[in-house]
Design a binder for these strands. Structure first.
Lengths: 257, 257
DNA sequence: CGTGGATTTGAATCACCTCAAAGGTCGTGG
DNA sequence: CCACGACCTTTGAGGTGATTCAAATCCACG
């Protein structure tokens, strides 16, 4: 894709209209508290600025100087490390309501590269702007701490997933997490439009692409999902949740001390 | 937080822990900035209090109300989740200089249970004490943000390890990380006294205990380490580092978008 | 249309796991 | 002080889930 685009260029143009897809409202955004603490309203351009990324555009690169925390309001972003040339590791996917770039906050430089998977709208929050009134700082910092804590726990539960769950469980857990809590609301089935490739999913879950495909097929044969390319429909949420649950037979208790 | 001020004999006792018989000085502690920001001198018991744990003692339990962030100054602590009865998942090991309980900071309750693996000295930092002078708050919060960021990046790199590295690479990476940066200083070999069981190591690395043992044996046969129970000597740091490196042949690049 | 990448499927192999059992080690109680 | 039990550690044998290699579509896009 248009790799060579200057990373910040798209900030210059103002967002005109949201995409067809619904944007996440501030009330569902994990940065809501931060934005409120900053004191600006929705359209305040002082510390919060909106931006749009085309699919494939880079939000920031690993090592690049920190220039703010981002919140995704629509679309999707992946963060990844480049381990070797032509070898990358997807670190996380970021969906509407999620933050991106939090781990760079205290470091002054982004740890990973962030790239939009589709057309994506983001809010850039300039949490380190020196013009933030002093009296607002404590609340802003508090909110950043909260956001970091959430992120940390997310990463910890991912580590647990990668240690204890087999390929099938990882995939099912991933699909259910994509669907969000609403899976339980609609018993009829959930439609997902995956913004990322099979390769990215496999990379993220730490399994081979071929394994991913085969297990998708198996889930389809078992009438648990209906997948056609990037369109996936969860047919039996109850059964899927059952599959996702960690095995409870193994004798893997930790020792006393 | 310096050793010479310790008057209690508990503190003076020499502890035979791995990874450094001596206690870590404040200058090497990841909470140093926090403690300085809190403004107390070395013996200030207002916000910083020392504690000692015998091997097997619990520092806090998952779900328990937050009562401060801890810094390990000697010994070792493991944090773990209890997934089912008699099934646990080690989340992390914490060595002198490390923090424990950071992920509870914004949540009011600890996420995992923390237990000392051997006799362990900790500093408990009461970062939420209402008596902290207002003017110190910003700096304290800044330091907490820094600590959280470090922790988050640590967890992210662990996730990468669990996705891309095989059992042998995980073990070697683990051993090298235990040895710390000093591995490169002493070409003669590094002695490690592991404070945790094989089961805990295997659990932490997401592999079976038997696999761990077999690979320890292989490393021993290859004259890379010399392990007798919990005493491990790294014989060939260069070769070990080579082993730990992620495979660079696989074609696992992420797709363009 | 043709091309390159993404997706899917097959076959064979391998790394790791599970099951089993034989030492070790440590703490406890007789 | 020793015997005992409980648990950790180690080793073997066998099974299997996942990978690697290979190749056939499928798809978007110039």
């Amino acid at each position: 894709m248009t790799e060579h685009n200057a990373t910040n260029e798209h900030w210059l143009r103002q967002v005109t209209t949201p995409l067809g897809e619904a944007r996440v409202p501030c009330s569902q955004c994990s940065m809501q508290g931060v934005c409120e603490a900053l004191g600006g309203d929705d359209d305040d351009k002082t510390f919060i600025r909106r931006g749009r990324l085309g699919g494939g555009q880079t939000l920031f690169r690993a090592g690049e100087a920190f220039h703010g925390v981002y919140a995704v309001t629509s679309g999707a972003i992946k963060t990844y490390a480049t381990l070797d040339k032509d070898e990358a590791q997807v670190v996380d996917f970021h969906f509407p309501g999620d933050t991106v770039g939090l781990d760079a906050l205290d470091r002054g430089a982004y740890t990973y590269t962030a790239r939009a998977l589709t057309e994506t709208l983001v809010c850039r929050v300039d949490v380190e702007n020196p013009h933030i009134p002093g009296e607002r700082q404590p609340r802003v910092q508090n909110e950043m701490i909260r956001a970091l804590g959430e992120q940390l726990r997310h990463e910890q539960s991912l580590s647990i997933l990668l240690r204890k769950q087999n390929a099938e469980q990882r995939i099912v857990t991933f699909l259910l997490s994509l669907a969000g809590p609403s899976v339980w609301a609609s018993a009829r089935g959930i439609d997902l439009q995956l913004p990322m490739s099979r390769k990215d999913i496999a990379n993220y879950l730490g399994i081979a692409v071929e394994t991913l495909c085969r297990l998708f097929k198996r889930l389809q044969d078992d009438k648990l999902v209906d997948s056609q390319g990037r369109h996936v429909r969860l047919l039996n949420v109850v059964a899927l949740s059952e599959l996702a649950r960690p095995a409870e037979h193994a004798e893997s208790e930790v020792c006393a001390v």
